[in-house]
Design a protein around this nucleic acid. Structure first.
Lengths: 343, 343
DNA sequence: GGTTGGCACTCGATACATTAGAGTGCCAAC
DNA sequence: GTTGGCACTCTAATGTATCGAGTGCCAACC
């Protein structure tokens, strides 16, 4: 798909003009942008061809041109300027994020908040999880005679807990047994290696203690299951309402974002460090009028999670991508640091 | 403020009719509802008086009547039927909520989700916190040579944690010292009793260990501060978009809900077990077109937190109040149960 | 052959007028 | 106190005319 240089220039101008104004772009304004080097009729001819090639679209016959998804894609891949954040901007981001170091979820939440504010889009992020994550520590905290809090910590710093209610009183022997089992069967393993079947086998091997221990072990395995999939954080959903092109689909979109499951599949499926999904390139029809920009963050060199935005297809890709990329870099840094794995 | 019985009847009819249809109510339809016992002219006269008294309003001269905020208030206080949920409905709610027992936040989240679905409004809930809450347990989990996770558990089942990064290596003595300090100065106290000044005093008394211990103690006191105020959970925000009367203010409203602080003040300020705030009765101008219905839930007989909805003033108070009330009762039960305080 | 000015044409947006209908307020009569 | 009747008001819906931005096409030009 090669396009003459002038067509590329015109396409880029249409995309940029449309991104800033939101109005269909006419041949006249392009002529001006080109410094009146050519007449509007020439531009019209070029634009007609770009339309025929599928890069531009017309809302209606007598309107200006608007980039098609294919047009955006070409722009993003080949025409868009590559900006970098100034070091002042980098510093600002760094400082704003730094205040929340220490709590992985808070860091991600804050990063999402910053992203939402910066981009005017909704921001998503997924909590860290990779194949090297292991169960680091398990604790049983007695709360009442028959209840205890099961606490669960992974090597990526994710902490989960759940109250467990037993049928009988929790004895010291049970607590000891619990720690022994945890150490033997859970610690150092990957959360998704713990299966319900395995837990049943363990329980069965306990003989007369099986009945009393089952609730505790079930609770623990539930926590494993919960830790085996990353959670999604959403920020700035209300920003979606400010985009007039999403006016009608905003409610549906927000509904979609709420049910985390499809979205989390989306976040974990992308392999590149930076993914740009425009319109129908997203795998869900609810997103067909939206674009996503997602960046991975790394903890100790490993892929850990993603961070990105969801907005209309009409967003300032060139300006936003560097921010997203840099924020994901910062998040990775902060989370790695917290885990002492930076060096 | 006494109103003739017929006026009361008419007011109730206008409110109910308007709630179901969303259209201003004319004298004709009231006449029909009254079984044509009187003519529309009579009803018109009554409605004119109700308008004069401030219970009804007219969107414009030749439109039907709409309840004013005062009208809603009168309806809610004196006219509204008192419904109770059927035991089948109670069972359904109970079963839906029960699956999440064990994790206080999940219970509240789920309760909010149910509420949002049931009411078509946004749901809010606040995590449990009362003056009897105390710090139950503090743990220090080493994660790297210089980093450790400080874990913090309150008597109401709230668990918090934070990674602490020290300047020097964390030694066994430091860990022991930490536990001693925690036991002496933190355990059994109310989180808000811990002040920064107090922590400084403690640190100062440690002599040459002060420098090394400070980061750990600061982290701990930060966790106390975080635990000293309840968190807000929001569900079903997108429901707000479905109400045409909020069309213009939905974005602003969602923005307002996001900044938790004013809202949490609102939630904690209400004293009654059930609060109904209509329009301007809310203390924030962002809520002046909205109504809130809030119910307290109790843990072990103590006020713990609130649960409720935010929607337009035009909501079906009579139908929704029982659901909210019952859900808050269920939440209280489930959370009490988890803490072994039910009997 | 690419470029240009000119021109007819399309179509949404805007403004304005008209109409229909729902609902009111008022009043004289019951 | 209640009623039917009636003039009045205001919105919403519909139709009509106009404006203008932008297009496509074409003959003429370099």
């Amino acid at each position: 798909m090669d396009i003459s240089e002038r067509k590329q220039k015109i396409l880029a101008m249409v995309v940029e003009q449309y991104i800033t104004t939101g109005e269909p772009v006419g041949s006249k304004s392009i002529t001006v942008l080109l410094g009146n080097a050519v007449s509007s009729a020439t531009v019209r001819a070029e634009m007609a061809e770009l339309s025929e090639m599928g890069f531009l679209e017309q809302p209606h016959t007598s309107a200006g041109r608007v980039p098609s998804q294919k047009g955006y894609r070409y722009y993003v891949d080949r025409l868009m300027g590559k900006y970098e954040l100034s070091s002042a901007e980098q510093h600002t981001l760094h400082n704003r994020l730094r205040t929340h170091a220490g709590e992985p979820e808070k860091v991600l939440e804050k990063a999402g908040g910053i992203l939402a504010e910066l981009t005017g889009c909704a921001a998503v992020s997924s909590t860290p999880l990779d194949e090297h994550t292991s169960i680091k520590r398990v604790e049983l905290v007695p709360m009442g005679a028959k209840t205890a809090l099961v606490v669960f910590l992974t090597s990526s710093g994710v902490l989960k807990s759940r109250v467990c209610r037993c049928d009988s009183e929790i004895t010291i022997e049970m607590v000891e047994l619990f720690y022994n089992i945890a150490a033997a069967e859970f610690i150092e393993k990957h959360p998704s290696d713990i299966h319900t079947a395995g837990v049943q086998t363990i329980a069965a091997s306990l003989g007369d203690k099986a009945l009393a221990m089952t609730p505790l072990l079930v609770t623990l395995s539930e926590l494993c299951a919960a830790a085996a999939q990353s959670e999604l954080l959403l920020e700035g959903q209300s920003n979606l309402l400010n985009h007039k092109e999403l006016e009608n689909s905003a409610a549906e979109l927000m509904e979609f974002l709420k049910q985390a499951e499809p979205l989390s599949r989306l976040l974990s499926s992308k392999r590149d460090d930076l993914s740009i999904l425009i319109g129908k390139e997203n795998f869900f029809k609810e997103l067909e009028n939206s674009s996503m920009i997602l960046a991975r963050y790394h903890i100790g060199g490993q892929n850990a999670g993603s961070l990105g935005i969801i907005g209309p297809t009409r967003i300032d890709y060139a300006r936003l991508i560097p921010s997203i990329r840099y924020l994901s870099y910062l998040v990775g840094n902060l989370l790695s640091e917290a885990l002492d794995e930076e060096s």
